Simulated scan of single mutants.
Amino acid sequence: MAKLKDTDIKLVIAGHCAPGCSCQLLLSFLEGLFISTAMAIPLPITILLRGARFCTIRGIINGILTFRGRAIIQAGIILLIFTPVIRVVFSAIGFILEKDYLYTGITLLVLLIIFISMLSGHSA
């Protein structure tokens, strides 16, 4: 097996993050289009995100398939959250493959902090 270089890791991370960013751009465009055509006046984001139907992945996917604006917005938010998380995961994998244990530990600590803050619902 050929030795893995730092630039190889960066290319893998960029290759996996680019589709997420592209999807987010498309969803943002669709959100803006839907909101501008469906609503005459802008609403606060808290009003747009209410509704238990879109609290699960299945509910969000069903909402997207039926062109529900709130589902599209929530899918965009999920993509915004998980694009950098995936980047951190791939960074950790890259550091493990490079046998750089200091940066592996730091990256896993960052990932742990992200997961704890997401699960607890608290921010700094």
Rank of each mutant, 00 (worst) to 15 (best):
R53W: 15
G69W: 08
A71Q: 11
R58G: 11
N62Y: 08
I47W: 05
I64H: 09
T66S: 14
G69L: 04
I86N: 08
L80N: 02
F54W: 12
F54P: 11
T46K: 09
T83F: 11
I45S: 09
R87W: 09
I81Q: 09
F67H: 08
I73M: 12
I57V: 13
T56R: 08
G59L: 11
T46D: 09
C55Y: 10
F54V: 07
L49G: 08
A75M: 05
R53H: 04
T83V: 12
L48W: 00
R53L: 08
R50I: 13
R58A: 08
L80E: 09
P44K: 07
Q74F: 13
T46Y: 00
A52W: 06
R68L: 10
V85N: 02
I81G: 00
I81K: 07
G76L: 01
G63N: 03
I86A: 12
G76R: 10
I60D: 04
L80G: 05
Q74I: 10
T46N: 15
G69K: 07
A71S: 13
R70A: 12
F54D: 01
T56S: 04
L49N: 14
G76A: 06
I57W: 01
A71C: 14
L80S: 12
I77D: 03
P84K: 14
L79F: 10
G59S: 09
L49Q: 14
V85P: 03
G59E: 06
I45V: 14
L48V: 06
P44M: 12
F54Q: 13
I45M: 10
A52Y: 09
I60K: 09
P84Q: 00
T66Q: 11
L48K: 10
G63H: 00
P44S: 05
C55L: 13
T46E: 15
I77N: 05
R87G: 15
R50M: 15
